[in-house]
Every structure is written in C-alpha cells, then in structure tokens.
C-alpha cells in the first residue's frame, strides 16, 4: 500500500469512510446509548480511547504475534483497555457510567475496533495506525452525537440536558425508545447517502465542464 499522508489517514474516518454511516459497523452502542448528546459523547470518547490505544499496541506487537492466534491476542489487548476505561468511568463519572451500563464492557466486541486493527493497524506503521484510529474514533463520536442530538431534541425537548421548548412542547416519546433509535439511524443514513450522491453529481458536473 502506498504511504499516504497522516492527515489523509485522519480525515477519511470523519466522512468518506465514516464507521457508522458508510461502513455500518459498531451498531450496538450507536443505537443503544444515543438517547442524549452527553451519552453519545461519553460512549464515543470511551470507544476512541480504546480504539487508539489498541491500534497502537497491535501495530507495535504485530511482528511477534503468530498469525494463527492474532484474533484472541488482539481481543485480550482490547479487553484490557476496555477494563481501564470502565474503571475510570466508574471512578470519575459515576452518573455517566450508570447510564451507559453494560454497553461499556460491550466495547470489547465493537467491530469497529477489531475491524480497524485487522484492516489497518497491523498493516501500517504505529504513527499511521494511531492517526487512522483517531480519525475513526472522531467519526464514530460525531455520528453518535448527531444521533444523540436528534433523539434528545425530539424525544425529551432538550439539548445537553437544557430544556429548549418550554411548556407547550410534547416530547415524542418514541424517539428515546428502542424503535426511535432504529428509525432515526435509518433516516439519517438515507440523508447521508443522498448528500453523498448529491456531492458526487456536483463533482461529475464540474469535471465535465472542465473537460468541455
């Protein structure tokens, strides 16, 4: 693979290759904890921490890991960092830890992390692996926060816990229920697809004009 710039590795995770909207990976936490922006941010940061640390370690230890047992080895590395993240959350942010509940340990099996380690971190140098992981983590966090914002505004009439609409607003209860998570993500994904198609059209038009 040709070496690409660090900034390329970082930015591809934000939009072009967004782990949630484009790769459709790591759906469980995305759907489960996106009832509010704060939950989304907390989950996104915890996942990013694990992703970056595990990608760095995996990229460094790759030469000494036999390829037959690499998946269990990486799983143990990931589980170790998840344990650290879980203990830190429990000690310093007890309310956030309580509302994320069992979804913090579930970061262990988040396919975004194993996917990036398998597909990128073990095939590249540590610096590239870390910038890729940072970009993917940022893209994941952004997707969680967008989803969290839509659901919190519509479902509880608030943003970051601040009431927005006053007395007259009836919250759409369905938005913070499980069904709302599926519906919101489905619609957001369609919007994302449509926007991407639109920008493609603009590019193609610009190119054909330039050629003419």
């Amino acid at each position: 693979m040709a070496a690409r710039s660090i900034s390329y590795e970082f930015t591809k995770g934000l939009l072009r290759n967004n782990p949630v909207f484009v790769q459709v990976l790591g759906m469980c936490p995305v759907l489960a904890v996106s009832t509010s922006v704060v939950n989304g941010l907390g989950m996104g940061l915890a996942t990013s921490f694990v992703l970056v640390s595990a990608a760095l370690i995996a990229s460094v230890i790759k030469p000494i890991v036999p390829s037959e047992v690499r998946i269990p080895v990486y799983a143990v590395v990931i589980a170790t960092f998840v344990t650290i993240a879980d203990l830190v959350l429990r000690a310093f942010f007890p309310p956030l830890s309580a509302s994320l509940g069992p979804y913090v340990p579930l970061i262990v099996v988040n396919c975004v992390i194993m996917g990036r380690i398998e597909a990128f971190a073990t095939r590249n140098r540590p610096i590239a692996a870390v910038s890729d992981a940072l970009g993917m983590g940022a893209g994941f966090t952004a997707a969680l926060m967008v989803l969290g914002a839509v659901r919190e505004v519509l479902g509880s009439g608030a943003f970051f816990g601040i009431e927005l609409f006053g007395e007259g607003f009836t919250p759409l209860l369905v938005m913070i229920l499980p069904a709302g998570a599926f519906l919101t993500l489905g619609v957001l994904m369609a919007v994302f697809n449509a926007a991407k198609e639109g920008s493609h059209m603009v590019l193609i038009k610009a190119e054909s004009k330039a050629e003419a």
């Binding site: 069904a179 599926f182 519906l183 489905g186 619609v187 449509a194």
Partner: peptide
C-alpha cells in the same frame, strides 16, 4: 425503494417498525 434508502437504511427502518410491534 427510493435510492438513498436502499441497503442498510431501509433495513434499520424496518427494524424500527418491528421494535414498535414488539413493544
């Protein structure tokens, strides 16, 4: 199915309706 909804998007929306039914 409208183009942007094809693939994962429509699947998620169907899952949402299914979740409503299971409620």
């Amino acid at each position: 199915i409208p183009r942007p909804f094809q693939g994962a998007a429509i699947t998620l929306i169907v899952a949402g309706i299914l979740a409503l039914a299971f409620m």
